[in-house]
Design a protein around this nucleic acid. Structure first.
Length: 279
DNA sequence: GCTGTATGCAGAT
DNA sequence: TCTGCCTACAGCG
């Protein structure tokens, strides 16, 4: 479930499991053989997330290992001796006591410091980082004719927000996903930012995306158990054609820039003042 | 066993 | 706007 909170959890877990320890680093699948060998036998110095990107550093090596999970990637942690590698195992970090297996990642490569800087500099502010500057995102949004649904998923505007948090934060602020960025008010943006900071911090702690306020929780009896990968209760994400928890209108979905977008057409109706002159 | 789907993104067109 | 890519799993026949 790789939105930003997942990567920050991963960074924390990698640091806790291997920080300050000498690790073996291998790529049984072979696709990351050179990179894995570069840090094999080194002491893992630390792991840090920027948006959906993970950077792992090692003592005595200037380069960092960069991981992006993409849609399918996962890091699985285990205790004890690692089992014999099976399937497409991109990267394995291990000590005698623990191991971590990376599969399916879009990116797992070695970056030298300038490359890592370049990557980080093209990312917008990350709500889970204390060094984030939400004004940078605002400066991109305020003049933009692109719809908010596009802007919130653009990692150069805002880093770490994915399809679930996008849908949920727009709903929680009753904002029409198709409204152009230039019609969003500054106060609205800062309220959404503060909300993302809080929601994603909670996601970081719990490992779930849970966005529904207690007063909107549906009756437990009426609710099928949720098996979705995001794990928590959400207002609109993947709830198409189900009644909105707030107004009962059926949640809508539409493909937008190659991704599924979900919203409540009543709660997130465009106000007259937000409507562009040309329609 | 096959098909569809998924919390993502880069590169080509 | 499109295609490709990486993996796992549910649902289906």
């Amino acid at each position: 479930m790789p939105e930003g909170h997942t990567l920050h959890r991963l960074a924390r877990d990698l640091g806790a499991a291997f920080g300050g320890q000498q690790v073996t680093s291998t790529s049984p699948q072979g696709r990351f053989a050179l990179g894995a060998a570069l840090v094999d036998g080194r002491v893992l110095h630390g792991a840090e997330a920027y948006g959906k990107h993970l950077f792992v550093s090692f003592d005595g090596v200037a380069q960092v290992v960069h991981v992006h999970l993409g849609l399918y990637g996962s890091f699985i942690f285990g205790d004890g001796e690692a089992p014999a590698p099976a399937g497409a195992l991109r990267w394995r970090l291990a000590t005698r006591a623990k191991y971590a297996d990376l599969r399916g990642a879009t990116a797992c490569d070695v970056l030298d410091p300038p490359e890592a800087d370049r990557l980080r500099s093209r990312l917008g502010p990350d709500p889970l980082r204390t060094d984030a500057e939400p004004e940078r995102a605002w400066s991109r949004i305020r003049g933009s004719r692109a719809p908010l649904a596009t802007l919130l998923m653009d990692q150069s505007v805002l880093a770490g927000v994915g399809n679930v948090y996008r849908a949920e934060v727009l709903f929680r602020h009753r904002v029409d996903p198709f409204m152009q960025g230039r019609f969003l008010k500054r106060a609205q943006w800062y309220a959404m930012w503060a909300d993302l900071v809080a929601l994603m911090a909670e996601g970081f702690v719990t490992g779930q995306i849970d966005t529904v306020q207690p007063e909107h929780e549906p009756e437990a009896m009426d609710r099928p158990p949720r098996e979705d990968a995001h794990g928590g209760e959400v207002y609109v994400y993947r709830r198409s054609a189900q009644p909105c928890f707030v107004c009962g209108t059926l949640v809508r979905t539409r493909e937008h820039a190659g991704r599924n977008l979900f919203w409540c057409p009543r709660c997130q109706r465009r106000s007259r003042r937000q409507t562009p002159q040309n329609g």
